[in-house]
Design a protein around this nucleic acid. Structure first.
Length: 471
RNA sequence: GGCCCUAUCGUCUAAUGGUCAGGACAGGAGCUUUUCAAGCUCUAAAUCGGGGUCCGAUUCCCCGUAGGGUCACCA
């Protein structure tokens, strides 16, 4: 009972996590993952997740990047809880107060410098290092100990109005009540100096968790030269945000169960920071693609259809040829397409590869292609097509569907040879070596078009090929 | 180089002081109503090396090796 109360008491402090990117580039997936971990941890503990902008480097910070980071975060569905977004560039007043206090207390001092490189100031503010041992507990890596002597009296500001990162993070984390600092592994060695500053300004020490880095296939840090690294690039490639989130969560973490496909809400439930891996993880786009496919399969039908329509309608080919894209067609082909793609950009590739043409226009092909590979000539192909046509003509329009077309043709195909019958049937409808099966095709195209295309195939058999003396 | 961290199939990972070291992705083979895809079944594939501790280590310890991070008036 006492334990229980103690436990509850210890948990009373509200968890606050944060994501403080500097707008010096598009949102990198590595950073997106640490944002995700912060988000998950906060949500899991019913705490809050804070977002702020660290733009103290005026030359490298760009509005364009800030916009991208905010959009990407929103796209991923990682909502933050603060209404107002702090910009460190607008908070020099705040930092100055702390800076002046430290100087007044003798914990920091102005220091004359010899210019090491261009842009260096002649005078900076340095932190007076007490040279103590710093020990902190990291949720992921356990106890970490550092001797701070080697840090020396490090710089905390260029001048009173121009503080440096280490100082601003500590002040802002303190002021916004951050309880858990979850960041990339590259922050480990920054921790001791930040703890030193915390002690100096009287800020409580947050709990740390350093997440391992995302690696490229060659095990080096994932960067631009390895291809897509920003969230926006994956978005442009046609990945689903929930799939990216799912994959990123699974990189370096696992729920301890066999479950691999998660929604954001499921992740919140299952997530456990202490089970995050210690070593870096190689980014594998193949697996991301697979996860994306699984999420596409789980999409509400209408959502997928909408996206499919968008891709088809906006393609150059469809626009150039002025093909009509009816909702009815979209609904019919959606299940066929869904089995054949992993990311939305695969739809675009199918269009450019002419793999969708036959749904919208009459196929053009060479009559010889109608012949099944084991047939010596077109004579029996012609017979088969004739049979299919006459039988299908009897099938009323309102019973025209995949199942019924199959019922009509199947016994005949069994009898005459599947390839011999089905290949020309399918080819007549698609004009393609590879396509969905003829029954689905027939049901998508409808009775009229199906019969028209068979008719056309029959004509080709008798005229063109006959001329060429192939029969 | 100093300091810090890490080490299981190709990749993401599970597991235990005693297991046939499990799963998933990717690969290979096959099945299913021609082709393509999907689906299903099967298959190959790993505990970095060397010392300890122990009846027994992949697991615990040490050393090595490899990889990574960090050493700014960048964040």
């Amino acid at each position: 009972m006492l334990r229980r109360i103690k436990y509850l008491f210890s948990r009373r402090k509200k968890v606050v996590t944060r994501f403080p990117p500097s707008p010096t580039g598009f949102l990198h997936i590595g950073r997106a993952r640490t944002a995700l971990f912060n988000y998950l941890y906060a949500r899991k503990n019913r705490g809050s997740f804070i977002f702020r902008i660290e733009d103290t480097d005026k030359t490298r910070s760009k509005d364009e990047y800030e916009k991208d980071i905010i959009e990407s975060l929103e796209w991923l569905g990682l909502s933050y809880d603060n209404r107002e977004i702090w910009h460190q560039s607008e908070r020099t007043e705040v930092y100055r107060k702390y800076l002046e206090n430290l100087i007044g207390e003798g914990k920091a001092y102005f220091s004359k410098e010899e210019n090491q490189k261009e842009g260096d100031r002649a005078e900076v503010i340095r932190f007076k290092n007490p040279n103590i041992k710093i020990k902190f507990t990291d949720i992921i890596r356990g106890d970490v100990e550092f001797n701070t002597t080697e840090l020396g009296d490090f710089v905390i500001a260029r001048d009173v109005n121009d503080p440096v990162y280490h100082f601003t993070v500590v002040v802002d984390d303190f002021l916004s009540g951050v309880t858990h600092v979850i960041r990339g592994e590259d922050g480990v060695s920054n921790t001791p100096r930040q703890i030193l500053i915390q002690k100096a300004i009287g800020a409580p020490e947050p709990t740390y968790a350093h997440v391992p880095l995302i690696l490229a296939a060659d095990k080096s840090k994932l960067s631009g030269r390895h291809g897509a690294v920003s969230v926006r690039q994956f978005r442009e490639k046609g990945y689903l945000p929930q799939a990216l989130v799912n994959y990123l969560a699974l990189l370096g973490w696992n729920p301890g169960t066999a479950q691999e496909i998660f929604t954001l809400d499921e992740l919140i439930l299952a997530f456990d920071l202490s089970k995050v891996q210690k070593g870096g993880a190689v980014f594998d786009e193949k697996k991301l693609r697979w996860i994306n496919k699984e999420h596409i399969k789980r999409l509400p039908k209408k959502d997928f259809e909408k996206e499919l329509k968008k891709h088809i309608e906006s393609s150059e080919r469809v626009k150039d040829l002025a093909w009509k894209v009816s909702n009815e067609t979209i609904e019919k082909i959606a299940p066929v397409i869904i089995d054949r793609i992993e990311v939305y950009s695969d739809i675009d590739n199918m269009i450019t590869g002419r793999d969708l043409d036959f749904y919208f226009s009459e196929p053009q092909y060479d009559c010889l292609s109608l012949k099944w590979k084991e047939e010596p000539d077109l004579s029996s192909t012609q017979n088969h097509l004739n049979f299919i046509r006459s039988e299908l003509e009897k099938l009323p329009e309102k019973s025209w569907n995949e199942e019924n077309v199959k019922t009509v043709v199947w016994p005949y195909a069994e009898n005459q040879g599947r390839g011999e019958v089905l290949w020309p049937f399918r080819y007549a409808l698609s004009g393609k070596e590879k396509s969905p099966n003829p029954f689905i095709l027939a049901s998508i195209l409808g009775k009229q078009t199906t019969l028209k295309r068979i008719e056309k195939a029959l004509k080709l058999c008798t005229s063109a090929c006959a001329d060429a003396n192939i029969l």
